[in-house]
Simulated assay, not measured.
Amino acid sequence: MAVTRIIDGVAVEVWHDVASIAELAAREPLEGLTEEYVALMGQPGQVFDGQSFSDPVTAAPSPDLVDIEANRRVGLIMAQEQQLAAVARANQLLRKRIEDGSWTAAEETEADALDAAASAIGAIRVAAEALKTNPVGIPADFTDDSHWP
């Protein structure tokens, strides 16, 4: 028999050739777990409705999901709280350049790094907007790297 571990209605693990749940319990640490163990054949990732397994229904691509993906990618470059600090620092450097006419070598390096991060974040925002306004709709694989800078 096959035994499938279900967590929150989703099959997460399958054990094959198990004689009984008691045999599985002897091999696996099951104490204190509230997951169901079902003597049915399911595959990891499938949804269990209490009677049978089925493939999960994925949400249709939407502008909100594109924004979530864009924010995830921006966060890989710089966390939101760091972005606010970077904008403030960039403004300080700009004011210094206007008032003093120049930067130190360290300030120029810092300004270049801030500019590169801002450009990368801007490119992600442009790609997100292009996905959201695509005349043929948002592609199903919009999270694939091929759609992003």
Rank of each mutant, 00 (worst) to 15 (best):
M78H: 03
N91C: 03
D55L: 11
A60E: 10
L76W: 06
S62H: 08
K96G: 00
D55A: 12
M41C: 05
L65F: 05
L94G: 08
Q92A: 15
E99K: 12
A88R: 12
E99L: 15
R89F: 07
M41D: 07
T109L: 08
A59S: 02
P63W: 09
G50I: 02
A106V: 12
R97I: 04
Q46Y: 01
A90H: 02
T109C: 01
E99Y: 07
P44S: 02
E107C: 03
L65E: 09
N71S: 10
I77G: 03
L76V: 06
S52F: 11
G75M: 07
R73F: 02
P56R: 09
Q46W: 04
S62A: 09
Y37N: 00
L93G: 00
L76C: 06
D64Q: 14
D100L: 15
V47N: 01
Q82R: 14
A39V: 15
A59D: 04
W103H: 00
K96Q: 05
R97W: 08
Q83A: 12
A39M: 15
A105N: 02
P63Q: 09
D64C: 06
W103E: 00
I77T: 05
M78Q: 06
V57F: 03
S54M: 14
P61Q: 04
T58M: 11
L76M: 09
A88G: 02
G75N: 11
P61E: 03
G50Y: 04
Q80H: 13
P61W: 04
A60D: 10
S54K: 14
D67V: 12
R72T: 10
T58L: 15
A90S: 14
R95S: 14
G42C: 08
Q51F: 11
E108P: 09
D100I: 02
M41P: 00
P56M: 10
D67S: 13
E107M: 10
R97P: 04
I68Q: 13
P63A: 03
A88F: 07
Q43A: 14
A70M: 14
Q80C: 06
A90E: 06
A85F: 12
G75L: 04
T58P: 04
D55G: 08
A59P: 03
Q80R: 14
F48K: 09
A39L: 15
R89E: 15
Q46H: 03
M78P: 01
A60H: 06
G101K: 02
D55N: 15
I77W: 07
Q92T: 15
I68W: 06
R95V: 13
A90I: 01
T58K: 13
I77F: 06
R73T: 01
D100H: 11
G42F: 04
Q51N: 12
S52I: 09
Q80S: 14
P63K: 08
Q82S: 15
F53E: 03
Q43E: 11
A59T: 06
D49H: 08
L65N: 03
G45L: 07
D67R: 15
A79E: 08
D49W: 07
G101C: 04
S52M: 11
L65V: 06
Q82N: 14
